[in-house]
């Protein structure tokens, strides 16, 4: 490939493999889902599906559970991503220092992330268990509570408990991503700052933060999308209950799709979530436009 002749088409050549694989696999299912959302499609009666236009979407807007789930989704995404980022950032900065067992610490911190969601869900359910849970036992021993609490059955505590499990699972992601980002910060910059007598905090604000900002922003964006769509841990821990207390949008769509097999309605619910996420991405892309086009 000579650069002179291939120039205008070169970037597309580089893109082709990735586009080809994703497009073959994902285009058809996505198109299908959009078609479902415009029909009263029931999985067990595919032949009876009729085109209903925007009726599913209008029904979604009138559905009380949609709004409850949406509110929970906002709390869910905001809370989890923020906590994961904060904890991950601290962990990454610490694991970037040199101490003799750093390699081991880095390998151990990844463990929560290395476990399948179904195990995480079951373990945390068991930890939170009213009768045989270790959390109640520990808290009672150290005197924080005087009788066992039904953590997962409390309409107010249930969502927080499931979120804690997800924060635990996902903070190593940020730790590792940021740790990799820190490696791109030239050491010379710290040396220069040191000579200028900058404090550790000022070094972080003026040297570290700007250098990793792009990577952190991308990681946050990807994480928002991932957390917004994740439902397996909720499904295992509470199934969305008690009542609607841990219903998030994908969970509600899941229940409508698989318990009711109402694929039309569920697809409309899912697409509402997609549109909301698109708005976030749009904001991000606009903000990052300068960097993206840099």
């Amino acid at each position: 490939m000579t650069q002179a002749t291939a120039r205008p088409l070169t970037p597309y050549g580089f893109l082709l493999p990735a586009l080809l694989v994703t497009a073959t696999v994902i285009l058809y299912p996505v198109a299908q889902t959009i078609v479902f959302s415009l029909q009263d499609y029931l999985l067990y009666a595919p032949d009876d599906a009729r085109f209903v236009g925007a009726r599913n979407f209008l029904a979604v807007l009138k559905d009380e559970v949609f709004w409850i789930s949406l509110r929970h989704s906002a709390v869910w995404v905001g809370g989890i991503v923020f906590a994961q980022l904060a904890l991950g950032l601290v962990a990454a900065l610490l694991l970037n220092q040199s101490f003799w067992w750093r390699g081991l610490a880095r390998a151990l911190v990844i463990i929560p992330w290395a476990l399948p969601s179904v195990i995480i869900g079951l373990m945390w359910t068991w930890i939170f268990d009213f009768n045989t849970g270790v959390l109640n036992d520990v808290l009672m021993r150290i005197g924080i509570i005087d009788q066992p609490q039904a953590w997962l059955a409390g309409p107010r505590s249930a969502l927080a408990c499931v979120m804690l499990a997800l924060v635990w699972q996902g903070f190593p992601f940020f730790a590792i991503m940021i740790l990799a980002g820190l490696q791109t910060v030239p050491k010379e910059l710290y040396e220069a700052a040191e000579i200028d007598g900058a404090s550790a905090f000022r070094q972080f604000v003026h040297v570290t933060a700007p250098a990793i900002a792009g990577i952190v922003a991308t990681a946050v964006l990807l994480r928002i999308i991932w957390v917004a769509n994740s439902l397996d841990v909720i499904l295992v821990m509470t199934g969305g209950g008690p009542g609607y207390a841990t219903h998030t949008l994908p969970l509600y769509a899941f229940l409508r799709a698989y318990s009711g097999m109402e694929f039309g309605y569920a697809a409309a619910l899912a697409l509402m979530l997609t549109v909301l996420l698109l708005a976030i991405v749009w904001l991000y892309v606009r903000r990052q436009a300068k960097e993206l086009d840099a």
């Binding site: 994703t22 994902i26 299912p29 996505v30 889902t33 479902f36 964006l221 990807l222 999308i225 991932w226 917004a228 769509n229 439902l231 994908p250 769509a253 899941f254 799709a257 698989y258 694929f263 569920a266 697809a267 899912a270 697409l271 979530l273 997609t274 996420l277 698109l278 991405v281």
Partner: peptide
Amino acid sequence: LVINMFPIVL
């Protein structure tokens, strides 16, 4: 990115 925004369950 948009690809990843559809809930996989559907």
